[in-house]
Structures are given as structure tokens and as C-alpha cells.
């Protein structure tokens, strides 16, 4: 299967606000896509609609050749659509390990010891291995961000949406997460990464989609996108401004 996700004329309105407006794109089975755009441009809403948290106001969404618009979120998760939340939503009064076990058990994993090995491996990569039996409540903001990432990896989806995975995460760890994403990607998974951290986006992604005011304004090769005038006007701005943006992006707390 080559094309995994096809989004056609997607629209999501909140009252008078068109948060997502006539958006179309497709993600192939093994792509690493960056989704960027200014605050409020509709990136999170796009993810929410694709993964089933929000009902679209119009358009169609297909995944692996099937319409998924009317499936509940858990069915989409079972089919292989995973996502993290920009504002972290860990299961606070459950242990870190239990947090990871939920998606694994939900998708019918029965081999407990294999699941636990995988969970431990992921915790180690995220430098959370010493916290496995702690309540998620007691994690710091950045650690929760990492736990969210670990949780969606445990779901083992084919296409993973990451909403601001690097916000509030230490730069050194960011590099580690990059390489883990690459590794998972090399195993045949696709990613759509939303981030204001331009370095990460341009370093990781083979393709970048830019949104502004709910619409797609650019889509393609990172270098080409970077130099497109519309994108510069809407988002990237001058080089110096870009620096500032990155600063904001990486300094942003997980609950921002």
C-alpha cells in the first residue's frame, strides 16, 4: 500500500471560525512530513479531525483505502493512526508503565513480557526508565511530553501524528528523539510532525506542509518550501525573526 492517508477538502468550523479550510493532502506509507504554520493556523485541529476527536464539518478522510470519517477514534487507532497531544494528556493517576500498557493492551497485545520489554526499551530511550513505577502525576512537564511520545509508540501505529513533540524537551534529548524517530521511520512507519522548532523540522522531514489560517499554503521539498514567498510572509519571516521563532518554539512549556 503506497498512499496511506488521503485528506480531501477537509473543513472544520467552530461557529464562525474556519479552523481548517478546504485542506487536501496525502501521506505515503513511509513518509516523514513536517506540518508547520503560525499559532492558530489549524494544525492541531487538523490532527484532531483526522484522528476522530473532532467531527469534520466537510470533506473526506481515508486511511489505507478506507473512509474513516465516521469511525470512532479507537477504531482509527486500531487501524494504525496514532497521535500525541500538544497539551499533554497523560493518565495522571496511573504509573508511567501503566500509561504505556494501555495502548499495547488496547490493540490486543497478549504477550505481556514482550510488551514489557518494549515498554522498558522505550522508557530507556526517553530517559524515563527509573520512573516506571512512579505516578505520571509526579512527572515534570517535559517528562510528560516524553511519556506521551512513548505511549503512542507503544500503540505501534503506521502513521503517527506528533503535536509539538519537542516543546519543553532538553536539546540533547531532542537529538535522541530525532534518531529514535528515524529508526521507527526506517521500520516502515510514517510521521507527521507538528512543531515550531524549525531546526528539527528541516532536519528530520523529507517534506513540509505549511498551513496558514486553516489553508494549505505550501507543500513540498523543505528547501523549496523554505524559499517560497508566501511561506516567508506568513510564517518564517526574515532570518533574524526565524531565530526568535525557534527560541519560542523550544522554550514553550508543554502546557503552552
Amino acid at each position: 500500500m503506497d498512499v496511506e492517508l488521503v485528506v480531501q477538502d477537509l473543513e472544520k468550523r467552530f461557529g464562525g471560525v474556519r479552523a481548517v479550510d478546504d485542506l487536501s493532502f496525502a501521506v505515503r506509507g513511509n513518509e516523514l512530513v513536517g506540518l508547520i504554520g503560525p499559532n492558530g493556523s489549524g494544525k492541531t485541529t487538523t490532527i484532531d479531525t483526522i484522528c476522530g476527536l473532532l467531527r469534520p464539518s466537510g470533506g473526506r478522510i481515508s486511511f489505507q483505502g478506507r473512509r474513516v470519517d465516521h469511525l470512532p477514534p479507537y477504531r482509527r487507532a486500531e487501524m494504525g493512526l496514532g497521535r500525541t497531544f500538544q497539551v499533554t494528556r497523560v493518565f495522571r493517576r496511573m504509573s508511567v508503565l501503566q500509561n504505556l500498557m494501555v495502548p499495547a493492551m488496547a490493540t490486543g497485545e497478549t504477550d505481556r513480557s514482550r510488551t514489557e520489554t518494549r515498554a522498558e526499551e522505550i522508557l530507556e530511550m526517553l530517559t524515563l526508565d527509573h520512573l516506571g513505577s512512579e505516578n505520571a502525576d509526579s512527572l515534570s512537564g517535559g517528562q510528560r511530553k516524553l511519556l506521551e511520545l512513548g505511549r503512542v509508540l507503544m500503540l505501534d501505529p503506521d502513521l503517527i501524528f506528533l503535536d509539538e513533540p519537542f516543546a519543553g524537551v532538553h536539546p540533547r534529548l531532542r537529538g535522541q528523539i530525532h534518531s529514535y524517530i528515524r529508526r521507527v521511520h526506517a521500520n516502515g512507519k510514517a510521521f507527521v510532525i507538528v512543531s515550531h522548532d524549525m531546526d528539527s523540522i528541516f532536519e528530520l522531514c523529507q517534506r513540509v506542509i505549511v498551513m496558514n489560517e486553516g489553508r494549505k499554503i505550501a507543500d513540498g521539498d523543505p528547501e523549496a518550501v523554505r524559499s517560497e514567498k508566501a511561506v516567508i510572509d506568513a510564517y518564517l519571516g526574515e532570518a533574524s525573526e526565524r531565530e526568535q521563532l525557534e527560541h519560542v518554539g523550544s522554550g514553550e512549556g508543554p502546557d503552552a
Binding site: C51, G52, L53, P72, P73, Y74, A77, E78, G82, R83, F85, R89, V90, F91, R92, R93, M94, Q98, M101, V102, P103, M105, A106, T107, R151, V152, L155
Partner: peptide, 25 residues
Amino acid sequence: SKWGLFFRAIREDEDAASALGVNVV
């Protein structure tokens, strides 16, 4: 059993549980 795990996940955050494959209903 896994029921207890899912119950608690639902208690903590229905949307997140659902996005992670738990049949909340």
C-alpha cells in the same frame, strides 16, 4: 486484568484513552 487498566485510563482521560485504541463506550 486489562479491564482495570482501561477503566482507569477512561477515568483519567477519555479522549486520550480513545485515541490510544480503548473502546471507551
